[in-house]
């Protein structure tokens, strides 16, 4: 049976899709069988981030409507053979697809995978319900910005109505230089305010966004390292936190901070 994890946030553009893709890749890199399910219907992006947008023949709605078998809809990743994507449905289907139907697909996938990561849409309406309903764990993504943290707080209240046995936090797009200069809210403060356990901290890394435009994963960069740690934490329950300030401390760090400030 797979662990079914929804990646959610409330606010859009905080990195849910990016985290789904990169966490999925790292888990697959560790040898696990991973299915990424795009539940962001209409505003789906998982396909482009994964670089599979031209390979889609069938999608989740076709599986539900019996137009194809589940294996026909799944797209295997070219880099990681144990990583698969279940594409999102077309926009017209949006209103008629229920959380219960998505759960049916998730339950069908479950025996053949170790992890099912569900990419949740922004907002807390029906699409949110559709994505969360079949999960039994939630990763709530925030950035160190007030509006994102506020939305996450609301999402956490709503999540308490679901049957989830764990909820934890990922703080994304953390700029180490700004943490050191006190320009963004600290990791500790965010954890204290939202009052849930932390699963991972991901730095703001230009390589993540640049490479995702190409449908590629960051490799060897700070972001890639942080995703490796995140995958370890998710998998074995360790509580390692990537230190985003590391690069900006010491003699070289001061130089890096000044360079960052000029760009």
């Amino acid at each position: 049976m797979a662990r079914k994890i929804v990646v959610t946030s409330g606010k859009g553009g905080v990195g849910k899709t990016t985290i789904c893709a990169n966490l999925g890749a790292k888990l697959a890199g560790l040898g696990f069988r991973v299915a990424l399910l795009d539940a962001d219907i209409g505003l789906n992006n998982l396909d482009v981030v994964m670089g599979i947008e031209n390979k889609i023949v069938y999608d989740i709605a076709d599986v539900i409507n019996g137009k194809c078998r589940i294996k026909q809809a799944l797209i295997q990743d070219e880099r990681f053979p144990t990583l698969y994507v279940m594409p999102s449905a077309q926009l017209e289907i949006k209103s008629s697809l229920s959380g219960e139907q998505v759960k049916l697909v998730v339950d069908m996938l479950s025996p053949n995978f170790d992890y099912i990561l569900i990419d949740c849409p922004a907002g807390v309406d029906n699409g949110f319900h559709r994505a969360v309903f079949s999960a039994n764990e939630a990763l709530v993504v925030v950035t160190p910005h007030i509006s994102s943290i506020r939305d996450a707080d609301k999402v956490l209240s709503i999540l308490s109505n679901y049957n989830l046995h764990s909820k934890s936090l990922i703080i994304n797009r953390v700029r180490g230089d700004m943490l050191l200069s006190g320009e963004i809210i600290s990791i500790e403060k965010i954890i204290e305010l939202l009052n849930i356990p932390i699963m991972g901290v991901i730095p703001d890394d230009d390589a993540i966004s640049t490479l995702s435009s190409l449908g590629a994963f960051a490799y060897g960069t700070t972001g890639a390292k942080a995703f490796s740690i995140l995958a370890e934490n998710v998998h074995n329950g360790s509580k390692k936190i990537y230190d985003c300030t590391y690069r900006y401390r010491g003699f070289m760090g001061v130089i890096r901070r000044n360079i960052k400030r000029k760009v």
Binding site: I146, S181, G182, E183, I184, I185, S186, K189, L193
Partner: peptide, 10 residues
């Protein structure tokens, strides 16, 4: 900028 920004924000 100084430490106040994060503190005020928080």
């Amino acid at each position: 900028m100084n430490f106040n920004v994060a503190e005020i924000g928080a």
